[in-house]
Simulated assay, not measured.
Amino acid sequence: MSESQTVMEKIYKKLDEITHQLNKENGQSFIENLGLAMEQMYTKNRELIEQATLQDRRKAFQFAYLSQLQKEEVQANHQITPDSIGLILGYLISQFESENQAFHIADLGGGSGHLSATIHEVMSDKTMMHHLVEVDPVLSRLSVHLANFLEIPFDVYPQDALMPLPFEEADVTIGDLPIGYYPVDERSHQMKLGFEEGHSYAHHLFIEQAITALKPSGYAFLVVPTQLFEDEKVKQLENFIATETEMQAFLNLPKNLFKNERAQKSLLILQKKEQGVTRPVEVLLANIPDLKQPQNFQNFLSELQNWMNQNHPKK
């Protein structure tokens, strides 16, 4: 057993143990207690924490979260974004942002903060300030605990991610978008992608908000339903994308990450238009192969590299 593995396992077991203990004492949900367990370890088990890499800590959190998830039924928005999606996203952001050494990244509907943490780990050579916007108070508190536990800079805003945002425009926006209807019609009517009648699609409004939150020429990397463009109400979205952005890529995530075909997701990459700077590109359409198939994955990376060289040549 490697040294790194033992540290990660020790941290995971300790988190799991403290979470259980707290659960018996206070009866709060496992998510709340996992946050408190991280805080306890961060303040009282410094020795173990300091032996661990960022990856050890993040993986220990992830295992603790998933292990608790099996013991307690949770709502869909309490699921965490799988590791591999964060790793792929981090890699793609590093390709598009290769010129920038420091940038602000906004995570809309940031949840537990696991997606932002994974991206931070992939891009540890960059200086990043993360803005996480999350309406669920339990998750937004958990992301604060996670940021302290991992010692990475998160600014967490506990608010509805579709309401006006309290920070300056970001260089990059990310989001694992919630699917379904958005209940606040008053707000959706103020937005370009709100429907005139009935509730609007939350995922459409999130795409609009992700572009609004960007600096001109900034990029949005969004996890969206694979059938995004197959809905009968898609015209409005297509017009918005064509008017406000230059679409870069639509990449289908590996099928084995999802329970069934209906649950499948893809990555939509958009660049916010800037007068005289952004230009149309040939949209990259591809399937991202399973990470466990190194040869196929290598082929995908070569295809991406060729596309980058043609459409975003280095200055």
Rank of each mutant, 00 (worst) to 15 (best):
164 P>E: 14
165 L>A: 09
165 L>M: 07
165 L>W: 08
165 L>F: 05
166 P>E: 14
166 P>A: 13
167 F>V: 06
168 E>D: 14
168 E>P: 06
169 E>Y: 07
169 E>I: 05
169 E>W: 02
169 E>M: 09
170 A>W: 03
170 A>H: 03
171 D>C: 11
171 D>W: 05
173 T>Q: 07
173 T>D: 07
173 T>C: 13
174 I>F: 06
174 I>N: 05
175 G>I: 08
175 G>H: 08
176 D>H: 13
176 D>Q: 12
177 L>F: 09
178 P>W: 00
180 G>M: 02
180 G>T: 04
181 Y>V: 03
181 Y>K: 09
182 Y>D: 06
182 Y>V: 02
183 P>H: 10
184 V>T: 10
185 D>Q: 14
185 D>Y: 02
185 D>K: 13
185 D>T: 14
187 R>Q: 15
187 R>Y: 09
188 S>Q: 15
188 S>Y: 09
188 S>F: 09
188 S>L: 10
189 H>C: 07
189 H>G: 08
189 H>M: 11
190 Q>G: 12
190 Q>K: 14
190 Q>F: 04
191 M>V: 10
192 K>F: 13
193 L>V: 06
194 G>N: 08
195 F>W: 00
196 E>R: 10
197 E>V: 14
199 H>D: 11
200 S>N: 03
200 S>I: 05
200 S>A: 04
201 Y>K: 15
203 H>I: 02
204 H>V: 00
205 L>V: 06
205 L>D: 04
205 L>K: 05
206 F>E: 01
207 I>Q: 09
207 I>W: 00
207 I>T: 11
207 I>C: 07
209 Q>A: 01
209 Q>T: 08
209 Q>L: 03
210 A>H: 12
210 A>P: 05
210 A>N: 06
210 A>S: 15
210 A>D: 04
211 I>R: 05
213 A>N: 06
214 L>T: 03
214 L>M: 03
215 K>R: 11
217 S>A: 15
218 G>R: 00
219 Y>F: 13
219 Y>P: 00
220 A>V: 02
220 A>H: 04
221 F>C: 03
222 L>H: 00
222 L>P: 03
